[in-house]
Write a protein that binds this DNA or RNA. Sequence first.
DNA 1: GGGGAGATTATCT
DNA 2: GATAATCTCCCCG
Length: 194
Amino acid sequence: MPGRQFFARDAVTVAAQMIGLEITFGGVGGLIVETEAYLPDDPASHSFKGPTRRNASMFGPPGTSYVYRSYGLHWCLNAVCLKGSAVLIRALEPTTGLDRMAARRGTSSAAVLCAGPGRLAAALGITGEEDGLSLLAPPFALRLSGAAPGLVIGPRIGITRAAEMPWRFGWQGSRFLSRPFGAAASVSKADEIG
DNA sequence: GGGGAGATTATCT
DNA sequence: GATAATCTCCCCG
């Protein structure tokens, strides 16, 4: 079971190694199939210009949650790594609590329950209330699934600054991704990152 | 103190 | 594909 040391590393390394982990919140969740890394000196990162009330959690201890509101209406869940860096969890393959997630999302299609950061947070019932909580303690739970997926690596989604950096990681071949990886994507293995 | 942009998504054409 | 929904913070004045 990943502990604080797992997150006390470079966010790019953690983002790669989080693919295949199982994360649950209140007994609901699934396998992480898509992540993105955000670094302290990264113009696309919320931490780039230093701490504010909104991003304060990004400067907390490794393993802290950072939940922010996106475009005024969606919530997005991150795992804090080294100070000022975090991994955005963008998509899950649902494994537990499918019925509760489907009820929250208003759809019964597993393929889109958690395919996207806003959808994922909605399915798990995560809001700003959970900002700053530890991911290493209940109601959160992390565990190694035993899966050893191939990794797809490509540019991050939905950003304008530093958009070319290949800091988006995916479970190769997963049908639960928020969006496909483009032709520019490359393939690797988790233990080759870092 | 105000205007604009942003790590998004559901819905309609 | 285009657009609306609408929060938080930055930056300029």
